[in-house]
Design a protein around this nucleic acid. Structure first.
Length: 555
RNA sequence: GGCGAUGUAGCUCAGCCGGUUAGAGCGCGCGCUUCAUAAGCGCGAGGUCGUAGGUUCAAGUCCCACCAUCGCUACCA
């Protein structure tokens, strides 16, 4: 019975290009997970899209003097291409400015209203008279009442770190034009999160296999008790609120962004001509769903999204919320403003996706922040991919084609070493499978690379390049075993390095594709022709370290 | 301030319910090999397990306090 796996990837807000920090924590693990499950024969839908309605996007548009849609669409296209160039296998990468998304968002919003989970509340907010609009907390600044810092934000003081309410700010002013806002009452619809307190507690408590940061952080929030939270905003860019009297407001962007997972699954099902297929993942009891994103997003996926789903009823809660920490560079977060960022399109103009996927998976910030360095990328590429994995594949294929007329040799009786090598293949399949299914991606990669090292040890023991001169049958058997190891490496590396796995496949086999072979050690058949071996990976010159570090400082 | 996570060899990380000389990969040193993109294999040197207490026959592994880093703290997406 195939499992039904929804791979839900966080929705980036599109006001810039993707950098390595973005993809390391969400897209890379999600794609490994999705590819693994497809190879296992499970039913997979991997969906995501661009969050078009983020405030930063609207802000950037205002700066440029164009409509938010222009900016959002521009960066959506850049993101789509970059994700595709990274070989991320989305079944659908859409965006939130579609009719389908608006309909589904409004439908769930009204569902909550009909079920009595929305309430109205009036609050006093800063209002700009010059712009005739309400200013969200990030658009006002003033003097901190606690420490006297002169440019405290509306929600928090950057100097003393205390949480603030904009009404407490001394000398409050608009960050947009410096004018002094007035405070005006505004009414919003609030989601009564408290309605779901008990259900959420029971649900999260039962999820003992979740990562510690996700589970404990959520339990901590629940322990404090949930309060109503506004689900509408005084802005004009976003999904209209489908309620009379709210024509000038929009649905809170986080509300509709997390609904994107559902609207995108439905859009995917429609596009493939099976409009009800989304239900496999969302309403059938054995549908599984995995949400990949950064550690700053946890509560939106463990509190708000589940509340929306519970409040509508009949929709599956997340099986797991896989939150990663951050990938840093130079000891800091990737930051556009500080100039220390490596952009995906730029990276891919000089290097290939697979080595990057390898390095990012090997340093994936699963338990704590990790650090991208060019030295590390260079070393991972040259010492591990080229020297260990690529070289093993290349040396076995080369010896084989040169001595056995470009075809798979016929094995004779297997000795203990041969049997151990085949057993190592099965062990690797088992270990990588267990690790990926448990969302331990670094572990899985290590287990895969262990098989490549084992292959080198085996071949060194057997010395077929030497034995072939005296005992061709014996050398042929060793190479046949080596080819089995290569075939298995193709499988266990496929989730991590899909392009390289495809290259191996096309050198070993002429029929079918990797997916058709499943998560198994496909037997190597004697006499099958083998293509000319080509290196899997390109060795990088030492000079790139200095070049890239200089480039980083220069931008 | 409150909540949460993290802190183990130069680097990236394993160490489950506490129990022989704390492990792996990469890097580094030495040796072997030369089929292979000068790639491979073997051996070895590196750690008072963030700090300071406590519990215990025994603690990296449990308890307390503290320090550092990161996230959240409900209107940043």
């Amino acid at each position: 019975m195939p499992r039904k796996i929804l791979v839900a990837v966080a929705w980036p807000y599109v006001n810039g290009e993707p950098h390595l920090g973005h993809i390391a924590g969400m897209n890379v693990p999600a794609d490994i997970f999705a590819r693994y499950h497809r190879l296992m024969g499970n039913e997979v839908a991997m969906v995501s899209g661009s969050d078009m309605h983020g405030t930063p996007t609207a802000l950037k548009a205002a700066e440029e003097g164009v409509s938010p849609e222009v900016v959002a669409t521009r960066y959506h296209e850049i993101w789509s291409k970059a994700l595709s160039d990274m070989s991320f296998s989305y079944d659908l990468y859409t965006h939130t400015h579609t009719d389908r998304h608006r309909e589904v968002s409004q439908e769930l919003f009204l569902g909550l209203k009909e079920n009595g989970h929305l309430s109205e509340a009036t609050q006093s907010m800063p209002f700009s008279e010059t712009e005739q609009r309400f200013l969200s907390d990030r658009f006002v600044e003033g003097t901190c009442p606690h420490c006297g810092h002169e440019s405290a934000r509306g929600d928090q003081c950057d100097n003393c770190n205390r949480t603030l309410d904009p009404i407490d700010l001394i000398n409050i002013r608009s960050k947009r034009d410096g004018s002094t806002p007035v405070f005006k009452d505004t009414t919003h619809l609030m989601l009564k999160l408290g309605d779901f307190q008990k259900q959420l507690e029971d649900w999260v408590s039962s999820k003992t296999e979740w990562r510690a940061n996700v589970r404990n952080q959520t339990l901590g929030i629940l322990r404090d008790g949930l309060h109503d939270r506004a689900m509408t905003r005084d802005i004009d860019w976003g999904v209209p609120v489908p309620v009379e009297g709210y024509e000038s407001k929009r649905i809170y962007v986080w509300f509709e962004a997390v609904i994107g997972y559902l609207s995108a699954t439905r859009a995917w099902a429609e596009q493939r001509g099976t409009p009800d297929e989304w239900k496999k993942f969302w309403t059938e009891p054995d549908g599984e769903s995995y949400y990949f994103q950064g550690k700053d997003n946890v509560s939106f996926h463990t509190i708000i999204l589940p509340s929306i789903l519970l409040g509508n009823g009949g929709l599956n809660l997340p099986t797991d919320v896989v939150a990663n920490e951050y990938l840093n560079i130079g000891g800091n977060e990737f930051s556009k403003s500080k100039g220390n960022a490596i952009w995906v399109p730029d990276f891919l103009s000089r290097y290939e996706a697979d080595p990057l996927r390898y390095y990012l998976a090997s340093i994936m910030p699963e338990t704590s922040d990790s650090e991208f360095t060019w030295e590390g990328f260079h070393a991972a590429n040259n010492n591990e991919l080229v020297a260990t994995f690529g070289n093993f594949v290349h040396r076995v294929l080369t010896i084989t084609t040169r001595n056995f007329d470009n075809a798979v040799p016929t094995p004779t009786e297997l000795d203990d070493n041969d049997k151990a090598a085949l057993a190592a293949c099965d062990t690797a399949l088992e270990e990588v499978s267990t690790a990926i299914d448990a969302r331990r991606f670094r572990d899985g990669l290590r287990a895969a690379m262990r098989l490549a090292r084992y292959g080198n040890q085996y071949i060194d023991t057997k010395e077929p390049w030497k034995v072939v001169k005296t005992d061709k049958e014996s050398a042929g058997t060793s190479l046949w075993v080596g080819l089995n190891v290569i075939s298995t490496l193709r499988t266990v590396f496929y989730p991590y390095l899909p392009t390289s796995a495809d290259k191996i496949h096309s050198m070993l086999f002429t029929d079918s594709d990797i997916l058709a072979d499943g998560w198994n050690r496909r037997d190597i058949v004697a006499s099958t022709p083998i293509g000319t071996p080509l290196p899997l990976f390109r060795k990088l010159d030492d000079s790139i370290i200095e070049e890239e570090n200089a480039r980083l400082l220069g931008n």
